[in-house]
Amino acid sequence: MILTYALIFTTGCFALGLLMNLWRVVNAPGVPDRILALDTMVINFIAILVLYGIIEGTAVYFEASILIAMVGFISTVAYARFMLRGNIIE
């Protein structure tokens, strides 16, 4: 019973965080802020995916979480490098 409420609360927190990040992506003051907001969206989404795994009681979503974490990290590094150097693979 307690766990149900805690799960609802945490999912709400991370969903609210995702909305804040989306707001930040849409109107950010600069390009680094936009990249940072996208990176935070990926991290928040991993949290929501793990929470959904707890709610459903299956361990299927962990593989998806690992994949999304890897793709998010690589895309953030690629964005930052594109900002710095103007291309990604030299």
Partner: peptide, 14 residues
Amino acid sequence: FLVVAGIFGLVGSF
């Protein structure tokens, strides 16, 4: 653990 994690996540995004 869940509630503390949720608060930390919200603070980070805020």
